[in-house]
Amino acid sequence: MNELELSLKELATNLLKRDILYSRLTHTKQAELIDFAISIGRKQARKCLASGLNPEQPELYLKKYCQLEFKKHPPQIPIYSEFEVKNNKIILYLSEIEEIVQGLEITVDKKRLINLFLLHEFFHFLEYNSIGPVSRMRKITVFKFLFLEIKRGLFSLSEIAAHAFVREFSGDPVVYINANAK
C-alpha cells in the first residue's frame, strides 16, 4: 500500500518495523515510542504555525533557514528527499516524488505534494538546529553483560516524528494533495 494512504499510526509502525532495533522492542515499548515520536512532531508543527509558517506556502518560511534544491535527475539511492545537515540544505528528487502518487486515483495538486516533502525535511532541519535528534531522545538496551550496558537510539523515531510534523499540517495526505478535494 502507498505510504501516503496509511494512517499515521500504520506508517509509524511500518517505519519502526524497518528499524534495525525493532526486534528488541516489546509491543508496549513499540506503542510508547511511536506515541512519543508523534507527540514531538505535532508539538513542533504547532510551534512553527505559531511562528508564522504557512503550510500552503512553506517555501518562503523555509528559505529563511535553509537552502532548497529541486533535482530532476534521480538520486543514487532509493529516496524521495533528503536533508544535508552540513549545508543546511533540503533536496527534493522530483522524479521520485512523482512516483509516490502512482496508483492513487486522484488528480494531484503538485504544489501540495511538494509541500509534504519540504515540510518533512524541514523537521529534520529543526532536529539538527533546534530540538536535537529525536532518534536520541529515547534509548533502548542493545547489550548487557554484568555491569556493562550499552543503550542506543532508534533512527525510525526521527522519521516518525517528521511524518507526524507533516500530517499536523496536511491531515490525511491523500485528501490534502487531491486537487478536486479543495
Binding site: R18, D19, I20, I79, E82, V85, K86, N87, E127
Partner: peptide, 19 residues
C-alpha cells in the same frame, strides 16, 4: 558525505527481511 536524513523508499533497508 556529512550527516544526511532521508525520506527513503520502503525497499531500502527493510530490516524485517533480516531478522
Amino acid at each position: 558525505a556529512g550527516i544526511r536524513k532521508h525520506w527513503v523508499k520502503p525497499e531500502l533497508n527493510n530490516q524485517a527481511e533480516v531478522r
